[in-house]
Design a protein around this nucleic acid. Structure first.
Lengths: 351, 351
DNA sequence: GACATGGGTCGAACCGGTTCGAGGATTCCG
DNA sequence: CGGAATCCTCGAACCGGTTCGACCCATGTC
């Protein structure tokens, strides 16, 4: 059941079948009908490997993300889902690669063996050797995230600096003076993860600007770490009245810690941060947060990559997103007992 | 930078390079060194498409799951992660396919165009046309889940019947008499999703056995639906004192509903169900649940698939898992005000 | 009637690997 | 010293597509 078989049964040459299918040269209606009939009858579909070999494109894009040893977060899940669906709309398949560094076997396979036409990279670091490598060999790629020097790269990113700052201003406006910052795990910060660094920067600068007293923490990507982190926060400064978190996976643990310490959210303690909306709504009270538009970002990344693949000489493009803070129910003025959380900021979705 | 180039520079024929790399025929040490030298110098890696075309194997497995329109759950995330990592250990890559039905374009591509050597299917239905089709064309696959007639299939599944029953018995032992069941969304139940059906069966039978008064509900895969569902439960029968859920994504909403109704968990109301452990621990109080061992299941599925690919004539194999209920902090005896939740069931992880 | 035009088809070469059969060079044996 | 066995290497064919150049046959034009 290959193209030769089709050709034989239709009484034409292999090249005619190929042209009938691709339309790259005219084929008479009569011949086309005959070929189509045989194809329908046999249920023929051209072999992807052979086609890829012949025309140098696999119609596959690689999705590169760090290995899961440290578990995946909900945000990553949303990326994977949206990238896969957006790619399918362009008739591209998605190959997953749980790759960390440049030297990684799976990453090398993706590129060196030409398994994919292009790649989308998640969890970008400020200095990212994977991206450096891709740029060096001029391999089409789009980063979800932005390095320290993103000029010339294709990327779609989140303005973590601005988002963390917006959280600070929101809390400061509510009168909070002692605020903690819950970052991603320390090893990721040390590895130079973009979100962790820019988020920390934005938080620190905005806090200084508003004259707040702050402490910053790293926290593991799971509920238990979140609990432990919150205990440390209250131990280090029991007068803390609010926190900003970039750590989605720790959120449940942070809430539990507050409950155990007898701090009611948002009456005694305000919580906010940068979290995908879908997950911000799973906690009670729902989190007032800068909603990471993970689905939109995945879609945009695929759009950019396809554009780049279609026109290899196109100039680099990017999207920097800064979604507004969605006011929900986890923040309130400091040191009061309001019936109405977050007054002056519109109506929370669930009071 | 193809095999011919390597051959030329090493002063040997293309076939000799191939044999030096594959080891399928003896090559002198001297020649091998020379070839390896050239390869290292040029950083050569054989082209995956060409290799796949020549030997008929892509070294890729397909991971088929339903489109995300309805969002992904945490459990699915864990599957994707563990399958990808397990596959990498065997030097297989993973191709994602967000495919629903037999007629789906992406699913057809996977098989018809021979993009993958085998497939792992998620979200199995009792009557699953995708599996029927795969079986009909004798395509190597492993299902995560079990159809109504799994004989002859390869699969790794969860004994949802037993798990739901175990939840019922746990609640009945604690003295609960009026229990609700929160299932996956109605459209999935109607579509014949295995977990929804077997879970419902197990729940219903065990409840009848224990003489409980029950109501069963379908619930959307998100927090808002969970909240709405809980409101309906308490509206339909305010005397309900416990619930069993298969719906991980709704969990946050169920908890919120209970909080809003002023029912304290576990003092006034017990919650349990079948949920991946990692997600059971994000809610407060932590959920007493049958922990879905998603990572283990993903790994087992890959192991089975690789075995099947290595030996196409091997007899069908499967794994049916029934993890025990992990006692955490969300269940307690009915109608009491215990200091110590779930007495008689060991020490909860966090009292 | 000679000649360009163009639609439709074919054969051959090519993409970059793998694999088979054959053959040259050594070595071992009688 | 001749013949068999062993070790290594090579050329050619093949996997299943795509694409190029050439050719044939109608038409249209002067």
């Amino acid at each position: 059941m290959n193209i030769g078989e089709i050709a034989k049964r239709a009484g034409v040459s292999r090249s005619t079948v190929s042209y009938a299918l691709s339309g790259k040269r005219p084929v008479s209606q009569e011949t086309r009908d005959k070929i189509q009939g045989v194809i329908d009858e046999l249920g023929y579909q051209p072999n992807a490997s052979a086609r890829a070999l012949a025309n140098g494109r696999t119609n596959t894009i690689g999705l590169v993300f760090p290995p899961a040893g440290n578990h995946y977060t909900g945000m990553q899940l949303d990326f994977i889902g949206s990238v896969t669906e957006a790619a399918a709309a362009y008739d591209y398949d998605v190959l997953l690669s749980p790759s960390g560094v440049d030297s990684d076997r799976s990453f090398q396979r993706l590129l060196g063996e030409r398994r994919v036409d292009g790649a989308i990279l998640m969890e970008i670091r400020l200095e990212d050797d994977r991206l450096d490598h891709l740029t060096a060999v001029d391999f089409p790629s789009v980063a979800i995230g932005r390095t320290a020097h993103p000029e010339g790269n294709w990327w779609v990113g989140l303005d973590h600096t601005a988002l963390a700052a917006a959280c600070v201003h929101h809390l400061a406006d509510l009168g909070h003076r002692r605020v903690a910052f819950v970052n991603r795990p320390e090893q990721l910060l040390r590895a130079g993860y973009e979100s962790a660094h820019r988020g920390l920067d934005g938080f620190t600068k905005a806090a200084a600007e508003r004259g707040l007293t702050v402490r910053t923490y790293c926290c593991g990507d799971d509920a238990a770490s979140g609990l432990a982190c919150l205990e440390r926060i209250l131990h280090d400064d029991p007068a803390t009245t609010a926190l900003v978190t970039l750590n989605e996976a720790a959120l449940g643990g942070l809430y539990r810690g507050l409950a155990q310490a007898g701090r009611h959210v948002p009456r005694d303690f305000s919580v906010t941060g940068v979290v995908a909306g879908r997950w911000a709504e799973t906690v009670t009270p729902q989190l007032t947060a800068a909603d990471v538009p993970a689905e939109q970002m995945g879609r945009l990344a695929v759009d950019l990559l396809v554009k780049r693949l279609d026109d290899p000489d196109a100039p680099a493009r990017h999207h920097l997103l800064a979604p507004p803070i969605s006011l929900r129910a986890s923040t309130a003025p400091a040191g009061t007992t309001p019936a109405d959380p977050a007054p002056g900021f519109g109506t929370p979705i669930r009071p």
